[in-house]
Amino acid sequence: MHYILRAKNIKKAFHNPAHVEILDGIDLDVRCGETVAIMGRSGEGKSTLLQILGTLETPCHGILEIDGHPVTFLNKSRIRNQKLAFIFQSFHLLDDCTALENALMPARIARKNISPGSDAHNRAVGLLKQVGLEDRIHFNTKLLSGGEKQRVAIARALCNDPDIILADEPSGNLDKQTSRHIHEILLNLANTQNKTLIFVTHDPELASLCSTRYRLQDKKLLPENEMMKT
């Protein structure tokens, strides 16, 4: 079986100033095309785990493998640019840029040709259309609603055609109806484009839509069905 992402015995502690252990021996195997939900109470370290999986944070112990290669031997910036994408609770779009410029930013960082008519440009426009923002392409992101901003963020995440999308409470700041719409788009895209999705969420509704569910509890990651047993 091919695992797109494997985490083995991940441990993380902060010194702030007292020693606080957040994660203690996390193991996670994610197959290509899988949708994973990680649930848990606030402050359990869900976001930290997601950042470790997304190479933004370095674990104190343990190994993270992406596409079969341990990330310690790879250029992390390159991995984040090519293989991974983040979707944040508060969208984190760039100010003073249009929706299209935001969606093109990963391609720009990858130093691809982004002039109108180029592959990257066409792809970004196509993605914005796919998320239903045809008429918002040249809007400054400041003028967009929360749901629209998150849809721009989704288009941006897919810009460089990554393998894995890491979403941290993607609908945390949105109302129920909008949330559903966002979930629908995300899962739909994952399905049609064969992307691996890893969610960190409180939302049981979103979790129920995922193929695999975990719960982060007492610094450990437990599969939802196991947890049910105990």
Partner: peptide
């Protein structure tokens, strides 16, 4: 932070 998360190097 956002640019780094999108793969911009230091």
């Amino acid at each position: 932070g956002i640019l780094r998360s999108m793969g911009a190097s230091s």
